[in-house]
Amino acid sequence: MIKPKVPVIEFKNVRKEFGENVAIHDLNLAIQPGELFVLVGTSGSGKTTTLKMINQLITQTSGDILFEGKKLKDIDTQSLRLDIGYVLQQIALFPTMTVAQNVSVIPDMKKMPKKETAKIVDDLLTQVGLDPDEYRDRMPDELSGGEQQRIGIIRAIAAKPPVVLFDEPFSALDPIVRTQLQDLVLDLHQKMHNTIVFVTHDMDEALKLGDRIGVMSHGKLLQTDTPENIVQHPANQFVENFFASSVAKNMYETPLAKLIKTGYVLKTIDNSEKAKELEDTATLESAFMTLAETDVIAVMHEHKKVGYLNRQQVMRYLSEVQR
């Protein structure tokens, strides 16, 4: 018998009011260990408020929030925060500290040995593709936006916290850098097996990153499910429209990875031997061109076959998401 896991974070009947306004109505949500959970919604939906209640930057008006089964009320806020990484939209590197000092902030507070911290800093810089010898002693204002947010991310995970919160971390970055950093988050998540709660207003980003997605609107959690179910079985009109609107504006540029995530790529297919290979980073546009000549596409992820696409599946995707 599999013992049911204790959720890392659990909201129980949580309500938050700002003066007259009710920001969160009655939130019930459990986030499992090792999960990459994405909260998505428009501005004012309550997603950031929900996120900030986890590390108590915002305290709930009523209800309970549990961290590893313990009520936050019973945990010292400062030590709680040392166990929760935080990545901000504004990046907010400390401008008077070097890159290395920024990354060492939490290890220092945890009184980790200097030598060990220095090694962690170098390892993490290498992992995010920045040469430690070149970047260690730079000041934040000497970095590009993308480089800064890489530092922002490794600053949050330097002390290996069990939970990392991302508050719309890439919305201010240009699309290419955004894609790179999304891949970086997936990569780091895979290596570190930590729990991530990620807030975004970008449905594409949510679909790409999320193991599970929570769609929020006007302070209510409308649906919590896998990307596939969110897209194929939306709980209501709002969820469906929200996803459709994200598709409409960039249909041709949709990467095949999105079709995998949303369940339109088939695991097996009859005439698989004739399939032409396409990377999952390729767009629908190139899929159209390929399917004009061949019947089946084998979708590759890092040189491994992950599934198949034919004209029928593509048409299904287009018709369903455009409803």
């Binding site: 930057l57 400062q78 030590s79 901000l88 907010a92």
Partner: peptide, 8 residues
């Protein structure tokens, strides 16, 4: 906010 969130 960052300083607070890191538990300073």
């Amino acid at each position: 906010e960052a300083a607070d969130a890191f538990g300073m």
